[in-house]
Amino acid sequence: MKELFRKIISHNSSSQKNLLLINVILLQTVLVLFVTLWAYFAINGIILVSLQLITAFSLLVAVFLTVAAIGLVNEITRLSQKERELEINKAMMEKDKELISILSTHRHDFQNHLQVIMGLIQLGRNDSAVGYIKEVTKSLRQTSSTTVQIKNLEVAAMFLMKKNEAEERNIQFQLEMKSELVGLSVPATDISRILGNLIENAFDAVSVIPEKEGRVVRVCLNEGAQQFIISVWNKRPLIPKDIQDKIFEKGFSTKGMAGSGLGLAIVKELTEKHGGSVQLVSDTETGTEFTLTFPKMTADVSA
């Protein structure tokens, strides 16, 4: 019967599955009510039905209810697992889109560079062409020298994208790589979300500073003996003391209508989910710095 239930479920679309699940629950209710009424009337001698018949029917109903309940629980568990997988796939797709977007930008840039080089060669300015190639190569090295060290492709892609975004917004984006984060037990999708949110917030914050005063956002990846330490820093603006405690609360935003108030709440939730913690320091001495710490995975020696 369990197999039959599974077969019926697996051959239906999701809307039909929902309907089937609801119907199983409704049928359970009908049967329970029916048996209850039947037993009540029979026991009080209002109707003439043998108690053996009621007992047999009740047992059948109990078996059906048990099998149906197990089937329902299994199906709900399976559906929630599918939902989780779907969320992960969705996040991965977003990252793939970002990668494609970066590659498209680079392809476009390379086409432009090639056209310039071809033009210089056609004009017979070979020295200028060589100089241009050197300049482009130097610029590329500067951009990717740090990010290529990151073993995790999604995180590297996220940093590249943020670097491009920073250039567009006239923000100086510095990445200090003192650790390659090898052994960090946080999934790539989650660490990308955490860092993406913090960097985006820092970009938004420094955007209010006039360009001539220097818009700088610095990300530092570091590690100690027991933990990984990641910080996102910007000199200004500072976060007032009275709102520093509320900043990680859901719905709280300093961006008014433009902010959803979810970014930092997600950062905190995801960080804590992976055993980490997030701290905020915002004063004139330090500037504004969000520091994430994640414990290092310790090998089980006894195993």
């Binding site: 039909q16 309907l19 089937l20 609801i22 119907n23 409704l26």
Partner: peptide
């Protein structure tokens, strides 16, 4: 399925 749910 709909008929069954309504009757139930």
């Amino acid at each position: 399925g709909i008929d069954f749910a309504a009757a139930s």
